[in-house]
Amino acid sequence: MKISDLGEFGLIDRIRGMLPDQTPDVIVGIGDDVAVLRGNGDTVWLVTCDVQVEGSHFLLGAVSPRDLGHKALAINLSDIAGTGGSPRFALISLGLPKDLPVGFIDALYTGLRAEAEASGTAIVGGNISGSKLGFFIDIFLMGEAPEQEVLLRSGARPGDKILVTGSLGDAAAAVAMHLDPTLGTRDDYRRLAFQRFNRPTPRLKEGRLIAKTRNAAAMLDISDGLAGDLDHLCERSGVGARVHADRLPVLPENRILSQEKHGNEWHFSIFGGEDYELLFTAPLDTAETLARTIAAETGTPVSIIGEILPLSEGRQLVLPDGRVVPLEQKAWDHLRS
C-alpha cells in the first residue's frame, strides 16, 4: 500500500493510532490544525506548523520571495486565528538549494518580518538545511489564549447558524487565471484576487473578538475550501450541515469567472481553498448579533450562509433555484491532489 492510497487524512489517523495516548496536559492533539496544551493558570498554549514546498505549494517563478515570506507566516497565523488565540513565537526552518541567491533570503525575511510585526509575533529561531530537491520553508508557531475562550471544530450543534468572514473564492480565481490566461476579468479584480492568493490576511482580530464574546460554538479557518473545512467541522462535531449557495459572500467578478470555468457561480467559493477566512457556528439567538458586532468592530463583513443539521441529514447544498443536492465532501489532500 502507498501513502496515496491512504490519503493525507487517512495517514494522519494511522500515525495517531501508532502513538501512545495523550497526557492530561494535551487538551487537543493530533488531528486538528492546532494543538492545545495546558499552560500556567487559565492560559493554554496553541501550537501549529505548516510547510511550503517548491513544486507542491508554489513555483519560484510565479511568486516573489517577499510574498512567499508573507504567506508562509500568514497561513500559520490563520490557524491560530481559527481558535480565537493570539500568536506569540515563531521558529522558521529553511531547506536551501546551494545556488539560491542571497537576495532571495533577504526578500523572504522582509516579508516574514512585516507579517510578524503586523501580528505581534516574535521570530525567535529556526533551522537551516541544504536541499537538493528545491526550496522549502517550514514554520512552527506558538500562540496563547484563555482556556475558556478557545474555540475548536468540535462544538457545533444542530440549530446553530453557519457564518463566514470576508469573501470566498478569490484565491481560487487567481489560480485559475494563472493556469488559464484566456480567463478575463476587470484589472482591479485580477489584482485583488492575486493579492488574496499571494498575501492572505489572517483574521486574528476577528477570531479573537469571536472568542471573547463566548457566543460562538465552533470555529476553524478555511484553507482546504469551504466544503472541505465544513466537512472537518461536521465530522468532529458529529453533525450535518446545510449551505445556501445564494448566501455565499462572493464578489460579482468571481461569480462570472466561476461560471465561465466550471459552469456555476459558486464552484470557486465552495471548493477553491486558500481563502483563510474564518468559518464558525453560533446559536440561532446570538448569530445575527455576533455577525453585526464583528463587522462593526473590525470592518470585516460576516455572512450567515447556512445552518447545522442533525448528523442523519448529512451535508446539503441549497441551489439558487431551491433544489437541494448533496454537498460534495471535497477537501485538498496533499497526498492525492
Rank of each mutant, 00 (worst) to 15 (best):
V250M: 15
V324Y: 01
R14Q: 13
R186V: 12
L11Y: 05
G273T: 04
V63T: 10
T23N: 03
A291D: 09
I30Y: 02
L209V: 10
K132E: 11
P310Y: 02
T201G: 01
I162H: 01
S237M: 06
F140P: 00
E307V: 08
P146Y: 05
R236V: 04
Y276I: 06
L319R: 10
G130C: 08
L46Q: 08
L19M: 10
E274K: 12
L11T: 04
A156Q: 03
G125R: 07
E149M: 11
S312P: 01
S119H: 08
G84Y: 01
E54W: 00
S258I: 12
D224H: 12
R255L: 14
L94Y: 06
S167H: 14
Q22G: 05
G299L: 09
I92K: 06
S129Q: 10
L327D: 08
C234I: 04
L319E: 13
T201A: 07
S56R: 10
L278F: 13
S167F: 11
I270H: 03
A173T: 14
A211V: 14
I105F: 04
D42Q: 12
T293N: 07
G166W: 01
A331N: 01
L220P: 00
P249N: 01
K161A: 08
A145W: 05
K161S: 00
D275E: 09
D160F: 01
A218K: 10
V302Q: 02
D21L: 15
V28Q: 08
D79E: 15
S167R: 08
D333S: 00
I27H: 00
G238R: 10
L19V: 09
E115N: 00
Q22V: 09
G134Y: 03
S119W: 00
T201S: 11
S154G: 03
W266A: 13
R38Q: 14
W45F: 13
L317A: 06
G299N: 07
G299P: 15
G306N: 06
C234H: 02
R88G: 05
L311P: 07
G10R: 07
N40F: 15
R208Y: 01
E265I: 07
V63N: 01
P65E: 12
A296Q: 12
V51D: 00
I256L: 11
D67H: 10
K132M: 11
D106Q: 12
